[in-house]
Every structure is written in C-alpha cells, then in structure tokens.
Design a protein around this nucleic acid. Structure first.
Lengths: 346, 346
DNA sequence: CTGTTAGCGCGTTCAT
DNA sequence: ATGAACGCGCTAACAG
C-alpha cells in the first residue's frame, strides 16, 4: 500500500519504466506484449502500486479532479446533488473537491483560486448568480464548467436544471383548484435564475387564471434561508393585503413562511396554505408536512457530472438539460377559509 | 488568471526562477532582497500567478489536500461537521476531498485508494468502525489520521468525539424524572463506537436508577437510518414487553421509531416518549419536535481538522478531544401514561 | 514491442 | 543575495 512507484515495479519486473507505464494504462496496454503486461500488472498488484496523480498531472495536465462549488451543504438539497456527482465521477476515476461558498462572492473567488491552483479539470457550479463575474472569467479562460440547478445570464454555459416553470405552474394549478385567489409569492433572490424564473412563472400563472397581479403580494428574499422566509412573510403582513396562500421560492423559504405564520398564530393550512420547492429531505416530516415540488436532485448531480466529463474529454459543445419535476401534495395546502373567516377578515 | 508559471514571472521580473520561488514563499522570503521581493510579488500579482500544486507536491511530497471519509452526507449531522472542517482547513491553505462511504467497507477502500493516489496529506474519518481494517492499514503506514465522531478499537488514533456517555446519562435522567421506568433502547450498529458506548451508558443509567436491565427492551440497528429505526421498533413490539420511552442511538433512528409508533397509532409523546441523539438540523421542526442530545458538530469538524494539521506539520502525538453535549428537551418526551392506560395495558 | 529521453512546474541544493 | 542545476513521478515521443 505504501507508495511503490513505477520505477520499483519496473525493477521488480525486470523491465523499463516506460513499459510499465504503458502496461498499466488500459489505453496503451495494447502496445505491449500481453504476457509481459500480465506480469507487470501482477507485480504492480503485489507491490501495491498506485499511480501518483501529482506526477501524472504534471505530465498530462489532468488531475482527474473537478471542483464543485456548493452554496450551502446544510441545505438538504445539495447533499443529494453531491451524491449524484460523486457516483458519476467515480465511474470515470474522478474525484470532487467540494467547497461551500455561502453565497459569498468573495469566498467563492477564494475557492475558485484554490481549486485552480490544484489544477482541477473543470467546475461544477451550483452557486451561480445571474451576473457572475467569477463564472464569466472561468468561461473566458476556456475552463470546462457545468452549472447546476441554477443558470447564469451567460448563454455559453452548459447547465442541468429542473423544469422550474412547470413546477410553479403545477403548484399554482393546485392552489387554484383548491379555490385560492389571493396568492402571495416569497421569491428567491433576484440575482439567481431560480429566483427570477420562478417569479416569472408565478406571474404567468396569475395571468393564465385571470387573477390580478398585485405587487404587494410579491416579496423577494435576500437569501434562500429560513430566516429570510420569515422576514419576507412579516413584510407581507405589514403591507396589510390579504392572501390565503403563499408560493415560496424554495423549501427553506417555505419553512420560514410557516414560522412567521406560527408567530402570528395563523394556522397552516387552515387559514394560509404554503407551497415549497425542491422537496428536500424531511419535508414530509415537518409540521405540517410540506406540499412542494420535487426535483430529481440525485439525477441532477449525476447528469451534471456526466456533462462535465464530456466537455473535458470530448470538448463537447455547450448544452442545457432540463429535468422534469413533480408536485408533492401534502399537508401544508388546503382550501382557503370561507369568506369572513380568513385573514384580514377576507 | 490563466496559468502564469514561475518561469513567466521570472522572465517578466528579469530574475531567475529560483529567486521567484523564494520571494513568493513567505518562509523563504527573508533570503531575498526586500525590494526585488516586492517587485516579484507585484509582477506575480499582475500576471495572476497561482502556484501549481501538482508541481509543488511532486517536490515537497505535500498536496495541501486532505481526504475526508463521510458515511452519508444526507444525514444532516455531517454537513455541519464538514463545514467546520472546511473553515479550519482554509485558514491553512488546505482543501478537503470529501467522499461518501455509505458505511460500505468496499466502497471505503476504493475511496481511500483514490485519495492515496492523490497524495492527500492525511485523513479525516467520520466513518470508522470499531474493527476497521482500512483504518488499521492507514495507521500502520504512518498516514496522519484523525477520527471524527466515532472512535475505533485502535488506541493509536487521534479522535474528536462528543461526550456520548454524558449525553445518554442526561437523556436517562430526564426520562426518569418524568417518571419513566420501562425504557427501551434502539441502539446504533454494534460495530461502531457510538453504538456500543451509548448502549453501555444506557445500561449504566439503568443500574444507577435501580431499574431492571431487560434484554427484550434493547434492540440493535444494523445502520443509522430511519428505516432501521422503524424495523427495530417493530421488533420491540413483537417481543410484547411494555415500555413507555425509547432512547434511540441517533436522530435518524429516533425518527424511525416515531414512524413505527405512528404505524401503530401510538401517540408520541402521550404514550411513548422518544429521545434522539445529535440534534440534527430540522429536529426541532419535526412532528413532534424531537427531544435530543445536541452535539457541537461544527466544532467537532473544526477541531478535528486542526488536530490533523497539527499531526501533519508537527507530528504531534495522538490525542483525543471530547466535546460537551447538551440535552435539548422538546415535544417528543412527556410523563408516561397513567398505569392502566399505557401500552399493552401497562 | 520495448528501451531511451525529455520535460511537465516547482523547491532546493550548491555555487557564486 | 541570486543563478544554475537537479529531481520529484509520470507519460509521450522517438528510436531501435
């Protein structure tokens, strides 16, 4: 196990290092006599030889390592994505350097520099903003990048995303079918594609069902966190416009909404329904169990990694993969209260 | 940004690469004229020079990268630990290669091989088993290792763990104070230190309070998962011995216990109280909010990383750090039902 | 089919 | 204080 090198294997097998290198690499193995190759492989195994990736990297300019930028591992959405990434990468002998960015542009830059320094072969970025300077530079320098979950304004990025418009459309159809007419939206941050796209889909649905767009019923969160969801909902209350349902930009925001509701002793879903987005782990165990849009997170990560490997090896052109979503109806949505019993005497 | 090398900086600064190397490394900077050093640093900055870690690694035998073995990122316990690890490492210019092992010994071996191949400077292992062949080999080969959360039977391992005995003792004191006498234990896997230590602490508490040890009220889970918790609780039911409280080996098992209770329409905490361990994110938002033992997870990761860096740089001797825990009393525990109204007519 | 050589980018020794 | 040269482990190119 402890560090035999090519030269050790070569000496032991009575052959030269070049031959060993060729024998051990499946791609070049055909260029060496089958019997000697077999002997070399056997010796390598016996000596516990493992290639030194640093040495190889210096020569091939490939580390077989990619960098993954994750906004916040504590958001249960991301561990699932990471898991998909890992599984896809492992098949190709790749490994991921995973870093949390905290949605902090400065920290993100530091992380990218650290990863670049480690000669990663490409980036998987789940923390992209619509206008993303760092992402822009990466692209400019021809670094292979695949954006996950969110997109950027830059059209030249490959991406794997969920069908957000469909998800919001399904959520709205569900609420309208229940009888809701005054529906609020706690949108994700405006500098993320998910924030904007879902907001647009929300407004499109309003139009579709002939419901009035009310700017007082839309509030934009500064981050995808529970605390932000709570703050936004308090805002909504302060505006004094009645509503019977809230579509939240994601599940954490939805949990924040529910917290604010509890603060004000407003029962969910009896007086206000709440819908989330992503279907994070434990969403169904919350109180109340969260109605939300399920995103195939594992697959999202796996497909993203596959796409990136394609770009690294085959210099494939950019492409966007959109994954289907499913509305999960649980306990946080119900028909609106009867007129006269609802919020603000609605 | 795009790959300036030492030689580029040297040419631009009208000086030789050796000098540049010395000027850029804080440790050797004193050996070079202050003015030229300043000029070199300026040029490096202007050219966007970033050290090539692969090149450095080949020379120094150090990659400034460590490997982290995590059983399951989807268990909210671990993202917190990882975050602590990241923050500590970043201060030292280190990065972590994070891999999920799934508690699968074979997968763990593959991951270790992949990390070794990448010349990681050390390992942070949160997936240790009591008898861990792979860990044993790492230690044997003098690879710096710090074990997190769990320990192994091998005394030569440095470790950062929570005060499990105290946590269980607190949980038991709480249940006994509420009036519980028939307390069951859904223990973690017997091949983990956490499983064994918590079980022992459970039995010690039974003795302390003069309660009878009943083997029918102890069942050992095969994994730290919700599903395993549910299966174990069904087992408990099948044995037909009454109990009014369950101490679970960790929070996921506790959630499984609660699921099994719901299956049988047994209200928690009215008829059976449940205590978990770890205080994972969202534990307080579950239904019912989980009474559990809080472990300082972020600090656990941060201290572990510090310890590992110490071992790498100062070849420090092995040591164990034990972190204090806190019982979080919430909604899943309550006094036992009155005799005659309880489970199995208790 | 295999041996030989060179060089990836860096840090360090030795010499000046 | 700085230049020159070497070698870390590996693979690619070229001979033979």
């Amino acid at each position: 196990m402890a560090g035999a090198k090519l030269v050790d294997v070569a000496r032991e097998a009575g052959v030269h290092v070049g031959t060993v290198s060729r024998a051990l690499n499946p791609a070049t193995r055909s260029r060496v006599n089958a019997e000697t190759a077999a002997r070399i492989i056997e010796v390598a195994r016996r000596l516990g030889y493992e290639v030194n990736i640093a040495g190889r990297a210096l020569r091939t300019q490939r580390t077989q390592t990619i960098g993954a930028l994750i906004p916040d591992l504590a958001n249960p959405l991301f561990p699932r994505i990471v898991r998909g990434v890992e599984d896809s990468l492992e098949k190709a002998g790749y490994t991921a350097l995973i870093t949390s960015t905290d949605n902090n542009a400065q920290r993100e830059r530091r992380m990218i520099a650290a990863l670049l320094s480690r000669q990663v072969d490409g980036f998987l970025i789940a923390s992209a903003r619509l206008e993303d300077q760092a992402l822009e530079e990466l692209l400019q320098n021809g670094v292979p990048v695949v954006v996950l979950n969110r997109t950027s304004a830059n059209a030249r990025t490959s991406a794997v995303i969920a069908d957000d418009p469909q998800g919001i459309a399904d959520a709205m159809a569900h609420l309208v079918a229940l009888g809701h007419e005054r529906i609020a939206h706690v949108a994700g941050p405006g500098d993320t594609s998910t924030g904007q796209v879902r907001l647009q889909a929300f407004e499109a649905a309003l139009d579709r069902y002939g419901l009035q767009r009310r700017s007082e019923l839309v509030v934009c969160a500064e981050a995808y966190t529970i605390a932000a969801g709570t703050r936004c909902t308090r805002d909504l209350f302060n505006r004094g416009k009645p509503f019977t349902a809230v579509v939240a930009g994601n599940d954490l925001l939805a949990l924040g909404v529910i917290d604010a509701l509890k603060e004000n002793r407003i029962p969910c879903p009896e007086r206000v329904s709440v819908v989330g987005f992503n279907d994070i782990d434990f969403a169904e165990r919350m109180s109340p169990a969260l109605t939300t849009v399920r995103v195939p997170t594992y697959e999202l990560g796996a497909r993203g990694a596959d796409l990136l490997l394609d770009m690294i090896y085959r210099e494939r052109e950019i492409s966007t993969v959109t994954l289907p979503v499913t509305l999960m109806i649980r306990e946080s949505t119900a028909p609106p209260p009867l007129p006269g019993t609802g919020l603000f005497g609605l």
